[in-house]
Design a protein around this nucleic acid. Structure first.
Lengths: 243, 243
DNA sequence: CATGATGGAGTGTGATCACACTTTCGGGCC
DNA sequence: GGCCCGAAAGTGTGATCACACTCCATCATG
């Protein structure tokens, strides 16, 4: 299983099967916003881009589709999801059901050591946001929540939350240039403070308010596929010059 | 894509790609309890059992694993999940978060016609239970909830609920010989009655109480992998006959 | 010049083979 | 008789090829 043909190429990940590496690479690209929503990801193109045979590429794409990180076009092609406003509302709603519960459950189980780690991650994320490094911020934000929720010790709940985050990511990452002036007033701090005071209810409330605040902000700032068409290239800005 | 080699074999499903058919067949078998929990499902064995090449069998198994209908053993083999008491509690907990919400959302959107269909399904299920046909009962129970929740118009929420049901099914179907004397006092009726009176709160409450009642019942009646060992075949019942 | 046919490129699906690894079971040794 | 080792069957992974189908551009025709 673990084949080491001397020295593997370089970037993706020198561990695991080719499919796992392809999966991880595509997943990261998806999170980071490497693919625009609606993009068709064909097996062979992904394969050559990743430097592997079509086989692992197909498996990775199908796995991502089964996990709802990708959608399936009529022909069977994988496409990065086009999240509508309605679906974003749905995601927000489900997050408000699951994440506060996970946060509350995690609070009594978080060790002081783990809380310190979370604090460090939050500080790093805040610094990244201040310096305008949105990718690092978003990675920190994600990691913080993952580790927080993971402490709840409910792997199934964690995986469902992950599904929602993955489905959001394509749209979220699209908002690259214009992210948070100050979308949340230290939501991370509120969450971690609740953990330190061992207050599950406060953690749940912090989680819920963070989700709703972020959703309200992004609903106004983001452009969705079902929004009325906006000029995206020069052609649509052309107007008749002869009344 | 849609190949019709004259006349396909027979049973599984005469529509869709081989992978889709293999997927549907395995999924149904899983729901029905065709595989005992812990069973290893190897690609080639499934392939010959389904009369297809290893290729579609592999894809179907990997897809089911990605959907958490199956687990992955260290070697990469697919195994039907061994649900522990802790995980069953987790499933119940998440269901109590998601399903009442889905039920409440569905209520105002259910048409009178669809409610009549649900009533018919519930009646059929009740009849099947009375006559001891547990498989038909369970299929009706599942279909009833699926259609009810589907009316909520939230496909993502529906798929998450489906994940939980699928993960339950291996254990649930195991309880074949000893199901409900009367585990729920017409929970279906309560749910449908709430739909007819257009009372979302009542639907949510009916959903929640049904989940908790069923879980409480099954927790006492079901045997879980992490329970202390019990005689499962003749050998373990043998006792020393000499001091 | 516009329009439809036709070719090629590209697609997902499936089959088959090769490879490295794990498991298992039987025979030989102590 | 018990234990260990080795061969064989079985495993998941990956590569390669074939096939049916779709899309699109190009060319020939009206």
């Amino acid at each position: 299983m673990v084949r080491n043909h001397g020295k593997e190429s370089d970037a993706p990940a020198p561990e695991g099967s080719l499919e796992q590496r392809a999966y991880a690479a595509l997943r990261d690209a998806l999170i980071q916003g490497g693919f625009p929503p609606g993009e068709k990801l064909s097996i062979r193109r992904i394969a050559v881009a990743l430097g592997v045979s079509p086989m692992p590429a197909r498996a990775a794409l199908r796995r991502l589709a089964a996990e709802r990180c990708l959608d399936i076009a009529p022909g069977g092609a994988a496409i990065v999801p086009l999240i509508t406003r309605a679906e974003y509302r749905e995601i927000t709603r489900i997050r408000c059901l699951l994440e506060p519960e996970a946060a509350a459950t995690a609070v009594p189980r978080l060790t002081g050591e783990e809380i310190a780690v979370l604090r460090a991650i939050a500080a790093e994320a805040k610094a990244a946001r201040s310096s305008g490094d949105e990718e690092t911020y978003r990675r920190g934000d994600r990691l913080l929540h993952q580790r927080f929720f993971a402490a709840a010790g409910q792997p199934l709940l964690l995986s469902l939350i992950e599904t929602l985050w993955m489905r959001r990511s394509a749209i979220i990452a699209q908002a690259r240039p214009l992210l948070p002036a100050r979308p949340d007033k230290d939501d991370h701090d509120a969450l971690i403070a609740a953990a330190e005071t061992r207050d599950p209810a406060a953690a749940a409330e912090a989680s819920r308010s963070e989700i709703e605040r972020a959703a309200a902000y992004l609903m106004t700032r983001l452009r969705f596929p079902d929004d009325p068409a906006e000029p995206v290239d020069g052609w649509t800005t052309l107007r008749r010059i002869n009344g």
